[in-house]
Design a protein around this nucleic acid. Structure first.
Length: 425
RNA sequence: GGAGAGCUGGCUGAGUGGUCGAAAGCGGCGGUCUUGAAAACCGUUGACCCUCGCGGGUCCGGGGGUUCGAAUCCCUCGCUCUCCGCCA
């Protein structure tokens, strides 16, 4: 959520900056509502003042044993008027809040202006895609040959966009999660966190998935208003909801391994083959809660932390800055890390690292006590995948495939796996 | 699942219809003392909204109600704790 000041002052500047990400702000409607809100609030407050002072007088008069009847008559009309004024104010406020909740974050100045993902800007590249002297297979065929990646059985058990892994592939998958967690904990200073995989609507509102993106979520029908998490970002970031953090405890750095559940509504026909886009996948997520002045520095570091995983796995990747038009709803700036996928001869997203500035913090009422001012101030929140495990598995299978269909295991993972090659069973 | 007790400021905790945004303590901040620190003592210290300011308003778990007036009474939802039952 943006600061409502953006709607009271300089609304045209705000509208212009939001336009760069393809969002049309109805400035006039907001200005009108703001004006009505102001009038209603003033009116309500006047009536409240009157009620407060007169009620106090009644209390005093009663204490002195005076006849309070005339005073009571005086306030008789107040109740209804006040109620009407309060109701009006509340209605306007609800409308304003709803509008505000639907407005995305303002892109940071450093974000390139662009229409869609074709205008994202490559920042750097790491590693050289391997040259194969045989025809590469994609991970689905590889998994099939190995007999350890089974989409058909998953379809029987549940439906499309699920997978059953078995044997060494399942073990590799588990090893990847362990490896990533350990790396971020031991080398990058994150605190391991274990959180609920089911969250309430408040939490989803806090991080920005609700109210706008409910169709992307799995909603539980038994427990009203409970949802499966689409990312660990939701439960982890909500740790600091309604909290005032002491400066000594800043910044907060959490790492968390969870399953993620996404309905993938609207993605029909996209990446239907294989593990790229599943209803359920696992991810190691990094979340940072930082002092505002540190957040852009933190974004660079967080992105590097995610990159380190790929470097240790020796997987070629590139980093792109999302252009304004491709930015997620709550993000002010996002770097996507894309790993080389040999079968597609292209880089595919494996991590998304974002600075939300105070956009989430405002919804969350997540604050820290600034020692300079002594006042509670909104924190900045960031998160990034470190990494999406399913997609990393795809990258390892495809990049490390051998002519005979076997997979060699990256050095960094061999201890975690307990083997150095996966052969067809 | 059954019975009971709670939810108050950064924290602990008093407050059962009026002058209560709210005692007290802790913590924080400033000062005195001290070579310095600790201790002690004195002072100060909630959040949010409107306003250039003066000032005003809201907030005692959430929502609703009763009342001229609600932290206090009623309803409802959520959560926490204790006991019983069940259970990985």
């Amino acid at each position: 959520m943006l600061d409502s000041k953006h709607f009271r002052q300089d609304i045209d500047v705000t509208a212009k900056r939001l336009a760069t990400r393809g969002f049309v702000l109805d400035a006039q409607a907001i200005a009108d509502l703001e004006q009505r809100r102001k009038a209603a609030q003033t009116r309500t407050q006047e009536l409240q003042t009157e009620r407060n002072t007169k009620s106090k007088n009644i209390g005093k008069a009663k204490a002195q044993g005076q006849d309070i009847k005339p005073l009571l008559d005086e306030v008789a009309h107040l109740g209804d008027e006040l109620k009407a004024a309060e109701t009006e104010l509340q209605d306007i406020q609800i409308q304003l809040d709803e509008m505000l909740l639907g407005v995305p974050n303002i892109p940071h100045e450093s974000v390139p202006v662009g229409k869609d993902e074709t205008q994202n800007v490559e920042v750097r590249k790491w590693g050289e895609p391997r040259q194969f002297d045989f025809e590469v297979k994609d991970h689905v065929d590889l998994g099939d040959t190995l007999g350890q990646l089974d989409f058909e059985t998953a379809a029987k058990i549940t439906g499309s966009r699920f997978v059953v892994m078995s044997g060494k592939v399942a073990r590799l998958h588990r090893a990847l999660g362990q490896f990533m967690l350990d790396l971020h904990i031991q080398e990058h200073g994150y605190t391991e966190t274990n959180v609920p995989f089911i969250v309430n609507a408040e939490s989803l509102k806090g991080t920005g998935q609700l109210p706008k993106f409910e169709e992307d979520l799995f909603k539980l029908s038994v427990e009203q208003r409970y949802y499966l998490i689409p990312t660990a970002e939701v439960p982890v970031t909500n740790i600091v909801r309604d909290v005032i953090i002491d400066d000594d405890y800043m910044p907060r750095k959490y790492v968390c391994h969870t399953p993620c559940f996404r309905s993938e509504a609207g993605s029909y026909g996209k990446d239907t083959r294989g593990m790229i886009r599943q209803h359920q996948f696992e991810k190691v997520e990094m979340v940072q809660v930082v002092r505002p002045e540190e957040s852009y520095d933190a974004l660079e570091k967080l992105t590097n932390h995610a990159e380190t995983v790929l470097q240790k796995l020796e997987l070629p990747y590139r980093v792109v800055t999302l252009c304004s038009g491709d930015l997620g709803f709550a993000s002010a700036k996002t770097y996507d890390i894309e790993v080389w996928v040999p079968s597609q001869q292209t880089y595919r997203e494996i991590s998304s690292c974002s600075n939300f500035e105070d956009f989430q913090a405002r919804r969350l009422k997540a604050r820290w006590r600034n020692p300079k001012t002594g006042k509670p101030e909104l924190v900045h929140t960031l998160n990034g995948s470190g990494l999406a495990i399913g997609r990393t598995l795809v990258a390892v299978l495809e990049n490390y495939q051998q002519k005979d269909g076997s997979i060699t295991i990256p050095k960094a993972l061999q201890d975690y796996c307990g083997f150095d090659v996966i052969e067809p069973t």
